[in-house]
Design a protein around this nucleic acid. Structure first.
Length: 182
DNA sequence: ACGATGATGAAC
DNA sequence: TTCATCATCGTA
């Protein structure tokens, strides 16, 4: 089973989408080469009130894509070095997105993709993908390949100590993966 | 524990 | 135009 997730999947409650992204496949195609990995770690950033979200201080040039209808990529640079990959959710006008923090491709690649900055580096994801649809024509999309995640963990979002009370929200969803010794 | 490294947004 | 901040990572 291989089904590319459509706009309607993303244009729903952000926390529900985040939870359901666990076990889906992130697929990257550059030329003839295709690489894919199971999504294992995500964080939700939802609405204007969420003080951890870029949207909390209103619309800016950078976060404008978060206000669009769900199903497009939001890619930005943090700490001057790392690209962060987010998928926009909800309907047009509601700012929200999900940060993809971890992907399991294979045992070797896992070590390289355990973290949002490493993930984008090894999937060759750059800011040129910002605003693009999560569909084949952009070279980056998400597929349902039939994996069902029964047990997952929730936790606080990483690196948002500035967010006041919002830093305690359990809006990180992730699964632990046992890695065989290489 | 800390420095790298540069885009961003708010202040001036 | 300046300046503090930052959804991180590698090294120690």
């Amino acid at each position: 089973m291989r089904k590319i997730l459509s706009k309607t999947f993303f244009q729903r409650n952000t926390l529900a989408v985040a939870r359901e992204l666990l076990g889906k496949f992130l697929v990257r195609k550059i030329g003839k080469r295709e690489i894919a990995g199971i999504i294992t770690d995500v964080e939700a950033y939802d609405g204007l009130n969420d003080k951890a979200s870029h949207a909390s201080r209103g619309k800016t040039k950078r976060n404008e894509v978060m206000f669009r209808a769900g199903g497009v990529w939001y890619v930005y640079c943090v700490y001057g070095m790392y690209e962060m990959l987010n998928i926009v959710t909800r309907e047009k006008g509601y700012p929200s997105a999900i940060l993809i923090r971890g992907v399991l491709a294979d045992d070797v690649l896992y070590k390289k993709t355990n973290g949002p900055g490493k993930l984008t580096k090894f999937f060759c994801i750059k800011r040129s993908l910002n605003e693009n649809q999560a569909q084949k024509n952009s070279g980056l999309w998400i597929e349902d390949r039939g994996i069902k995640i029964k047990n997952f963990l929730r936790g606080k979002r990483i690196g948002i100590d500035y967010a006041g009370a919002w830093k305690h929200r359990l809006w990180r969803f992730y699964i632990m993966v046992e890695i065989a010794k290489i």
